[in-house]
Nucleic acid binder design. Sequence first.
DNA 1: CACTCGTGGGG
DNA 2: TCCCCAAGAGT
Length: 351
Amino acid sequence: MRDSADTGISSRLLDWYDRHARDLPWRIPPRSGAQPDPYRIWLSEVMLQQTTVAAVKDYFHRFTTRWPDVQALAAADDGDVMAAWAGLGYYARARNLLKCARVVAGQGGFPDTRAGLQELPGIGPYTSAAIAAIAFDRVETVVDGNVERVMARLFDEHTPLPAAKPVLTALAAGLTPAHRPGDYAQAVMDLGATICTPRNPACGICPLMKDCSARAAGTAAMLPLKTRKAAKPVRLGLAYVGRRVDGAWLMERRPGHGLLGGMLGWPGSAWGDTPPTDAAPVPADWSPVTAEVRHTFTHFHLRLSLRVAHLPIDAPGLFVAAQDFTPTALPTVMRKAHALALPYFTQTEAP
DNA sequence: CACTCGTGGGG
DNA sequence: TCCCCAAGAGT
């Protein structure tokens, strides 16, 4: 039951997009006639999950330069991909990226339907719709945070999220046009990112100003309603930064699941709500570092105390040679720990 | 449905 | 300082 008013909204949005589409590294400009590369669309959409455009740009460039197609990525070393993803967060994305690349390479290419795409690791309801619409011109509706916000305002929907998600999804589906679904999907998201913003929406220059119920009601800035999240608890932990006399660092590869799964890190205690007990990875004269690492994850604050030591050349464990060690290959909390411990080593090695 | 899972920027 | 937020997925 797509009526003329709905057609008008999608038309106005596409017109606006034709004139104001942002220039993004993974984007084919509207009306250019070029065919999007499903690999680049997929990679960008996974990187953009819960992550800002600004944070993604450099990573996208590095990945596509080093691994230009899905076959190259599928053949990559796991540790190299995890290292390249380091700092971007949500590391399950990188693990699933590799799994997905290997399935797709084995199949000779990406599925070209939403249902087929959604069977792949790391591709859920949003990403499957985005790839199907943008890369394969399928009439699918993307629903991300931007779309939820735009729909809540267009229809002045006051049901709080996440309960409102099915309603907002249905409203979004009702607006999706039969032509240019990929450009339309990107148009709604661009509108949400640049005009229909979470705070201080620029309603005065919005192409959908006269269509917007919340604009008429004066409720745009307070929508969408959301249930308030629980406060983050503080967790405590202890990490051991040890260095061999030849400069190699004692590290560990974290398990392939859970927090920072698959990433390199410093050995240490579990992180809990009580002061950690000693968990030295190898016997040594471990010295406490006065300052502590403070880092905030999605659902808790971490205070990480450090111990440092010089280790004998025959100490057991995973050692990363000095010339192979790059802090940028570490997740941010581990990079902070290294930065805090480094002076201890440089200072004691000076004459 | 509720929880886990990173990080950096903005108000 | 603290909270919110960002092109969500997996369990």
